[in-house]
Simulated assay, not measured.
Amino acid sequence: MRAIELFSGIGGMHFAAKECGLDTNIDVVLSVDINPVANKVYEHFFPSTNHKELNILSLKPEQINAYNPDILLMSPPCQPFTRNGLVKDVDDERAKPLLHIIENLIPYLQSLRYILVENVKGFECSVARNKLTTTLNQSGFTFREFLLSPKHFGICNSRLRYYLLAKAKPLSFNIAIQNEIVCDNTWDTKLCKSITKVSDVLCERGEDLEKYLIRDDLLLKYYKVLDVVTRNSTGSCCFTRSYGTYLRGTGSVFSSLDDQQVKQITNCENCDLESLKNLKLRFFTPAEIAKFMCIPITNFPVSDKKAYQLLGNSINVYVVSRLLCLLLS
């Protein structure tokens, strides 16, 4: 199976293709992204892949057809559709590459049989989504849509995302009817058993964690809005690209104390700094966040700040691997 990975980022789709464990190997014959920092990381982990740093708007059907792809994998920019943004949809400049794929590539790809698209919740009610599904119908594809979180698969992290799977007819699906969004994983009995609680992601040995401690002034200002998790926590909040820079709504932070001790300190009406410092609150490291997202990475060839940004734009590898298994089954 020959796959092309567009908006490739740090290679989440590529990792998922390796993870799904099908009898048929998935060979990523081309990956494309315009972000030089993401490309540096991608090439670090997949040095043998034919990787191109270019604007997707420059791609022509004949260039893609030369690779005879069976599968198209893509995670387009989410900013035009995220609920925390301006929601400019197709009027956002960052949506243009996706529209180019929809209008100028998909209808003309001769060998294409499978498509997987990932984006944020909100994409399902966008004009871009309607354009995509219209093109799929006109090009002879049947499709299914999903709103899924890693929590559905037993993973201790919330990251609700939209997914679309498409197959060229006469290939078909054996779940749900078209135009209904699937919001659970009852179609899949295989759960992830390795990342079920926070202790499963911790990389505390042999690493300098002092630099990840939250500064005193930020502790006093934001402790009431922080999502604090401990070793035994079975959940954590979605990590965004601003993690490590901003505290409010960017992801959970870690305390080495137990749950009861954390509650005793944080439920206090007027916590003083010394009490808060006893929590030893810290940011998760990039390697730990990668584990939450089931990305098999232990180090990044870029700064922590850049790594957080790249991870915030990436996918959960396990979830996508299960969807790939469904798509290709």
Rank of each mutant, 00 (worst) to 15 (best):
Y243V: 10
Y243F: 13
G244V: 09
G244H: 10
T245W: 11
Y246I: 11
L247E: 13
L247Q: 09
T250W: 05
G251W: 04
G251H: 06
G251F: 06
S252N: 09
S252E: 05
F254V: 01
L257S: 00
L257W: 00
D258Q: 09
D258S: 08
D259T: 14
D259S: 15
D259V: 12
Q260H: 11
K263M: 10
K263I: 12
K263H: 15
Q264C: 13
I265P: 03
I265K: 05
T266A: 07
N267F: 12
N267A: 14
E269V: 09
C271N: 03
C271V: 06
C271M: 04
D272P: 14
D272A: 12
L273T: 10
L273C: 12
L273M: 11
E274H: 15
E274M: 15
E274G: 13
K277W: 08
K277I: 08
N278A: 08
L279A: 07
R282G: 01
R282Q: 05
F283V: 06
F284R: 00
F284A: 00
T285E: 03
T285I: 02
A287L: 11
E288R: 04
I289W: 01
I289N: 00
I289M: 04
A290F: 07
K291C: 07
K291S: 07
K291H: 10
K291A: 05
F292I: 01
F292G: 00
F292V: 02
M293H: 01
M293E: 02
M293V: 04
I295Y: 00
I295A: 03
P296V: 04
P296G: 02
P296I: 01
I297L: 10
I297S: 05
I297K: 03
T298Q: 13
N299F: 02
N299G: 03
V302F: 03
S303R: 02
D304G: 04
K305G: 12
A307V: 07
Y308F: 13
Q309G: 11
L310I: 10
L311K: 05
G312V: 04
